[in-house]
Design a protein around this nucleic acid. Structure first.
Lengths: 141, 141
DNA sequence: TCTTCATGTAATAATAATAGTTACGAATCT
DNA sequence: AGATTCGTAACTATTATTATTACATGAAGA
């Protein structure tokens, strides 16, 4: 998704799902499905018909990785998802009790960090790396 | 696995893979596969033939959840596994650069917490919950 | 209005990862 | 020898994710 948004930021006109699918080497329908979540969160807008496609709804400076995380439904950050669920099993309840705070703290910390990274900063860093990359390939150009 | 170890701690004799499989409602071969990792880490021992089975190699007081985490091969704690991989993709490299420290810190924090929880403490907590559970079911017994 | 282009979405298929099963060899005890 | 139990390879089943197909809906332009 980050790929998609950075690509979109560098274009004037909307990008179609087909174009994005090529960039991400995936399928247009998959693009639409995922972008739908971002649209509902107000991060992007979609237009139908001739000249339609996807556009950023906000400038990159106003978008953080946390926004995207939230827009994608705040998916579990940890593999041990069921640790915090607490079903009937008493052993799991004991484990939960021992680790709940740790997971909560770790999650809060990560989400705070996501909020500190704007897509504009990512785009800048990407451009710098891209320039380096080209310089390495063609040092005498 | 924690279920298995707590069960084993409450028995004098070794537990067979078949017995453990019933406790965990899974398959004996799956039990053997997973316990093999714990054995290689020195947490449990296995014996073959008549009277064989699985035994704890250390007392519960000396076992922490961190030991088990290490014995299982230190599996990724986070869903975003590839964030720290850094393949050719420059966008991912930029993301990695922005978040690597955050993930490292969060992981270190979680692992430290795992190291604070002994299986003995888990067992105690489990027993307390179990007693409560029985009292709730049969308050006048 | 009619055609073309693009998203919206449901239904289905393909793929990959995980878990379970079968089968048999090797080791151990009675 | 015979019963028991782990060790392990090969295979199957299940589940979750991703990809594809198909068609409906809406928007721009001739």
């Amino acid at each position: 998704m980050l790929h998609a948004l950075l690509h979109m930021a560098e274009r004037e006109r909307p990008m179609t799902s087909d174009e994005l699918a090529v960039c991400l080497s995936t399928n247009p329908v998959v693009v639409r499905r995922t972008m739908a979540g971002l649209r509902e969160a107000g991060l992007v807008a979609s237009g139908r018909g001739h000249g339609g496609g996807w556009t950023l709804a906000r400038p990159l400076e106003d978008l953080t990785m946390r926004d995207i995380y939230a827009a994608l439904g705040e998916p579990m950050l940890f593999q041990m998802g069921n640790v915090s669920e607490s079903p009937g099993c008493l052993v799991e309840q004991a484990v939960n009790h021992a680790l709940d705070d740790a997971f909560r703290d770790a999650e809060a910390m990560l989400i705070a960090r996501l909020g500190e990274v704007t897509l504009a900063a990512l785009a800048d860093d990407f451009k710098r790396r891209f320039a380096e990359h080209r310089a390495r390939l063609k040092p005498h150009g």
